[in-house]
Amino acid sequence: MPEASEWSVVETPEQPVDETESSNSEQNGKLGADEAAAAGSPPARSWTPLVEQIRAGNSEAMTELYRTFSRGIRYYLCRQLGSQDLEDKLHDTFLIVVQAIQRDELRDPEKLMGFVRTVVRRQVAAYIDDAVHTRRDFTDLEVGGRVPDIRGNPEQRAMVDEKAEIMTKVLGGISRRDREILTRFYLYEQTQEQICEEMALTETQFRLLKSRAKARFGEMGKRKLERGRILLRKV
């Protein structure tokens, strides 16, 4: 199926926490099958037994729920809110999910993923709302607010700088036109369609350029890592 048909721009209003908020997963299930198969996708799963065990108060089921979703919830919270107090936020979110399941707020167990997503999104909204109010309250006292630093900690910034150094070398090794194409896409966030139209490129040429640059970036990163390991061994 052509990728252009994967995304339809449809506005949907926010729904209360119930199964209606979950995705049109049947449509999405047909998409990207070849790539999914190649990527070794996790097998399809029924959530009903797990949800029933959680409702019954089974602690092993709660452990299984945590094991299944904790990494994804942590990842989402970190992307949206930064790494500050991450474990506390994860714990709070997980608690809300479990309590809501035990209160029978999840009517269709097979919609568990949509349900968890909704809870996580609402938690993020609540944290942001709280941070904004706290910052407002403290403005007069000139105390720093609790707005998370989404730029990351010094270690993360150092990693970005290191990768940027590699990227500079990659960009230095391609033509000015190719550099312009990639800059339009990654820096100015122009769409593939616009870039291809304005720069007389086919979709294939565009994708090839992107993947070559990424491959080169990956190779140079690995080489740098390997050089680092060799130096460490010598020490």
């Binding site: 979950s22 997963s25 999405n28 993923m113």
Partner: peptide, 21 residues
């Protein structure tokens, strides 16, 4: 750039798939 309808699919999958994360 994902539409509001489609973003639910993506985010639900990202909740459980460590490879995609």
């Amino acid at each position: 750039r994902v539409s509001p309808e489609a973003v639910a699919d993506v985010e639900e999958h990202l909740l459980v798939c460590s490879d995609c994360q």
